Computed example of a mutant assay.
Amino acid sequence: MSPGLFTFGETMGLVAADGIGPLGHAKSFSFGIGGAESNVAIGVARLGGEATWLGRVGPDATGALIASRIAAAGVRTLAVTDESFTGLMVRHRRSGEFAQVDYHRAGSAGSRLSPADVPAHELQDASIVHVTGITPALSGTARAAVFQSVETARAAGVAVSVDVNFRAKLWSRFDAAPVLRDLVSRADIVFASPEEAELFVDPGDVAANLAELGPAEVIVKDGGRGCSALIEGVRLSKAALSVTVVDPVGAGDAFVAGYLADRLAGAAPEERLTTAIATGAFAVTVPGDCEGAPTRDDLAALIGDDVRR
């Protein structure tokens, strides 16, 4: 296998109410999987890149489903079986504009990730190591796994990618801010929304303020307004595409996958942003966290043949 993306974190079972409205009025539910890191790995694989995902899962049907689904998507899957349960999230759309997610993950298998779970050679042999700000919020051992892995990758000259991905249901802004700032300062590539970035840098020129912490590639995800970036000192921006939104969940992960897949393919920064915008746009047209991850042909149908590589 050629070097590609290596990522790790918690993937959970996803119980999703079908339709729109209060959870108590839902008539049917679907069951799938969801996790920021595995979403990115699946997105990269769908776009033709090599990707590996590692995580802990429980000795239950949900854990087995997670491992099989990620592997079936073309991702090299390193699932460590833990004696604890596999985490779950329950999601419903209270209205056409807002989705609500409840987590059931305290003490889960995924939260028990530790530095010993992440082999040094996997980090050293990758082209990009991708982590998120979700994993450090899960437990002390998970946080240690993230920081140790980042340092191992950096020592080997491997690019480190960080998606800030602040989750208010996992930790407070006060607790998160110094940890996320420290993590971003160790990254080569960082993704954040303006609101996430302002947890630990001054508002205003968010991209420049993030770049001052150290990352050479800063990408600010701004939803329906598109994105802006400061990459190796060059400012770039892309407008969002106009699409019919079916399910907004997973758009940010799809965006990250598009950018990293193009980076792995050797594309120029502007091309990476074009693909990222298109991948995020395509994802919201399909229900589910990762089910809508597009192929290159899907993106070509959306915006043209320039995304075929």
Rank of each mutant, 00 (worst) to 15 (best):
F147N: 02
A257D: 01
R105M: 05
K221M: 12
L236A: 06
T244S: 14
F8I: 06
G4Y: 08
T135C: 02
G233R: 09
S172C: 03
L260H: 00
D247V: 06
C227N: 11
L78S: 05
D60E: 09
L273I: 04
P115R: 04
V179P: 01
F174I: 13
P178M: 09
V234D: 14
L210A: 09
I42K: 00
V249A: 04
M89D: 05
D289S: 01
A168S: 15
L170T: 08
L260M: 02
L213F: 01
E232W: 04
P203K: 01
K27E: 15
L113M: 12
V158R: 04
G9L: 10
A126L: 03
A265C: 00
P59D: 07
T244G: 11
F255S: 10
D202C: 07
E232T: 11
G223N: 12
D175L: 08
L170M: 14
R69N: 05
A293R: 12
F6D: 03
T244Q: 13
S161E: 10
R173Q: 15
P178A: 10
T11R: 03
A61G: 11
G258H: 01
A73V: 06
R173P: 05
V164Y: 14
G87M: 06
F282K: 11
A99S: 15
R143L: 13
H121Y: 12
S38F: 06
A278E: 02
A283I: 04
L78V: 12
V184K: 00
G21P: 09
A265I: 01
G24W: 10
P203R: 04
R69Q: 13
P294L: 10
D262C: 12
A64P: 00
L65Y: 06
S111I: 00
V234A: 14
G34R: 02
R296V: 03
D222F: 10
V162P: 03
S114G: 12
A72D: 14
T132G: 15
G24A: 12
P203E: 06
P136E: 15
G49S: 05
E195V: 14
G74R: 06
D262F: 08
G280A: 14
A45D: 05
H121C: 07
T52W: 07
R46K: 14
T7R: 00
P115T: 11
I134N: 02
A268C: 08
Q148R: 01
R173H: 10
V190G: 03
G49Q: 02
D125P: 00
E97R: 09
G304R: 05
A211R: 04
G223H: 09
G32Y: 06
A278F: 01
Y259Q: 05
S149A: 11
M89P: 00
L14H: 12
F6I: 09
A239G: 15
A116G: 06
R296H: 09
G250K: 11
E151G: 00
L47Q: 04
